[in-house]
Nucleic acid binder design. Structure first.
Length: 588
RNA sequence: GCACACGUAGCUCAGGCGGAUAGAGCACUGGUCUUCGAAACCAGGUGUCGCAGGUUCGAGUCCUGCCGUGUGCGCCA
């Protein structure tokens, strides 16, 4: 917790007692604020909270409290000043005390263990959920960035996290793709593809077939459409029965998509502890049968579902033709998570358009008697749009992963890394470009509130200044550069009282507050809070970097203090970026 | 039609549980590299916080209505 805020609460309580106030009102440490301007102080106590109990005007309370508190300052080391400012009592903390509470802990690593005292509950974070036989585009990247960051943040906060993927390798969309292939492209080989992203060509080719199938079906005349639908249904039934020509074709083409996904995850540094496949969820049919017997589900118009009345309406779990639905499989997956994985809390990172669906799934799980139904949470995020509107395969305006990656690569080399050719070896150049591209994408996807749409303008994502992943990496590499110029090891026992610059204190404060931001991000399931904290940290560092030279510091003790400060900053930056799935390069 | 989410500076966005003069980035104008990396820093100004009511000591934040945008609402996922 925040030792400074807690001490303030204790000091005020003691002061009130001394003034004869009884009973002393409870003040939660969370009510201690941060003044809008550091010139006012570092912590603020709003006296409105006491106005009722003391029956006095807040400014008067502030003045009286401040006067008394100032006298008690001599006996302690945390605060150097207390001032009343209108209805607030502002506290200035001792820079040395602040530094002593954060720098040694960061340098010995214990700072990064502090949040581990969290719940320890077993949490599954399910994310990515790409569909095979469809192309992977920028919209899918937002999901990966969010889900992966969430998994890392929760683990940092002490949860036992299982990161899970759930691949959509069955269902109508695949039947359509394979139907089209059999009908129009039978025997056509996929494009070969080369290099480290060889599988993208095949994955994207399948996506094109799917799009072509959709167009053909949509544009068909009614009679022909009926025939097409019957053919697609026949394919789907072969897939569910796991036999026939379509099934063999499915096995082969499915692997193409899986290979393509694997390349993308490797490039992104996204990892999963477990991968579920939709095609393994036949168990869903049994759940429906049992539910029917128990009277949880009912038959309706030939199909099976559950009626939630007005609020959640009717939830379909089996089609009239007997084939399963997305919902059927989601019930099966939930059961597997609970029973086979012992999951206590289940988090689903899925687009906001499925909010109703998940409310229905969770409500159904409750009716089926799963106590964990109350610990299921849907992390809804809004779509990634293009400036001209929604991405649509039909209009041909999706930005594919491969195109985005290539554009970033070209930008990074053309503007920066080409200058290092000959100097750095090829492997480092390529790895640096990858890390910067990943930082740009992941940070851009995660820095914003998940509920807000992202308007994706490729040009904007090629920018490397301002509030970007590149900026954060740049801050980190500058510290690494300082470390190369001043190769001494950072000294956790340096004299931190020498850090007298405002910028140095501001940087210390960001370091001190970092863990609290990560805790808040985990509690709210909002990685953007970590992104914001990192950005503030990088800004504070950049300012301090300009005011506080290390190598040219006036004397050796000051140099040691600054070196420790900057090294600690680098450690926190590195850890914070890791929580977002970003590894900064050592130089760029 | 009903439900959910979102309307903050020219643009893209922040604004922990209601609190001080609503903040960043981009863009624009100046300044700062013989001294640890200028992908940076410093200094400039811009707001009917969608509109109208309400709650309270205090509302960008909470409540109600309206307007706008997006998404969803039984055999897609």
């Amino acid at each position: 917790m925040d030792e400074f805020a807690e001490t303030i609460v204790a000091l005020i309580a003691a002061r009130l007692q001394a003034l004869g106030v009884a009973p002393v009102p409870e003040i939660p440490p969370g009510k201690i604020e941060r003044p809008p301007d550091a010139a006012l102080g570092d912590y603020a106590f709003p006296c409105f909270l006491l106005a009722k109990a003391l029956r006095k005007a807040p400014p008067q309370i502030a003045a009286e409290l401040a006067a008394g508190l100032r006298e008690g300052l001599a006996g302690q080391a945390l605060f150097t000043d207390v001032q009343a400012a209108g209805p607030y009592v502002n506290f200035r903390v001792s820079t040395a005390a602040l530094a002593a509470r954060v720098l040694p802990a960061v340098l010995d690593g214990s700072y990064f263990q502090a949040n581990l005292a969290g719940s320890g509950r077993k949490v599954m974070v399910e994310y990515s959920q790409p569909n095979t036989h469809k192309a992977f585009h920028v919209g899918h990247m937002r999901n990966v960035a969010l889900g992966d960051a969430l998994a890392r943040i929760l683990a940092y906060n002490g949860d036992q996290v299982v990161a899970a993927n759930y691949i959509g390798d069955s269902g109508t969309h695949i039947a359509k793709c394979l139907w089209y292939y059999q009908r129009h492209r039978a025997g056509d080989p996929p494009p070969p593809g080369r290099g480290p992203f060889a599988a993208q060509a095949r994955g994207e080719w399948l996506g094109e077939l799917y799009t072509a199938a959709t167009l053909l079906l949509e544009d068909a005349a009614p009679e022909q459409r009926a025939q097409f639908d019957a053919e697609v249904r026949a394919v789907l039934q072969q897939l569910e029965a796991r036999s026939g020509e379509a099934y063999a074709l499915w096995r082969e083409t499915r692997q193409w998509s899986l290979d393509a996904f694997e390349e993308i995850y490797r490039w992104l540094d996204a990892r999963f502890d477990h991968v579920f496949y939709e095609s393994d969820m036949e168990l869903g049919r049994q759940i429906v049968d049992e539910g029917l017997r128990k009277g949880v589900f009912v038959r309706s118009q030939g199909a099976v579902g559950i009626d939630f009345g007005e609020e959640l309406s009717f939830f379909l779990v089996l089609k009239a033709d007997g084939t399963t639905l997305y919902s059927t499989k989601d019930l099966a997956l939930a059961q597997i998570k609970f029973e086979r994985f012992g999951i206590e809390e289940s988090i689903y990172v899925v687009g906001a358009e499925q909010t109703l669906h998940f409310k229905q799934v969770f409500a159904t799980l409750e009716r089926l008697g799963y106590p964990q139904a109350h610990r299921c949470r849907h992390v809804a995020y809004a779509l990634v749009m293009l400036p001209e509107g929604k991405m649509s395969s039909r209009a041909g305006n999706v930005i594919l992963f491969s195109r985005l990656r290539e554009a970033l690569d070209a930008y990074i080399f053309g503007n920066y890394l080409d200058a290092h050719r000959g100097d750095w070896d090829e492997a480092e150049l390529r790895e640096t470009a990858r890390r910067l591209a990943v930082a740009g994408i992941r940070y851009g996807m995660v820095k914003q509130d998940p509920t807000r749409q992202i308007t994706f303008n490729l040009g904007d994502w090629l920018v490397s200044e301002g509030n970007t992943g590149t900026y954060l990496c740049y801050a980190y590499t500058r510290i690494m550069s300082v470390g190369r110029m001043v190769p001494e090891a950072p000294d956790p026992r340096a004299d931190f009282a020498l850090l007298t610059q405002d910028t140095e204190k501001a940087l210390l404060r960001e370091l001190y507050d970092f863990n609290r931001h990560v805790r808040a991000a985990g509690a709210a399931l909002q990685p953007n809070l970590v992104a914001g904290a990192l950005y503030a940290l990088a800004q504070a560092f950049s300012s301090a970097y300009h005011t506080s030279p290390v190598k040219q510091a006036d004397n050796a003790p000051l140099r040691a203090a600054r070196l420790a400060l900057f090294h600690a900053t680098a450690r926190v930056m590195h850890q914070g970026l890791a929580l977002l799935g970003i590894t900064p390069p050592e130089r760029m």
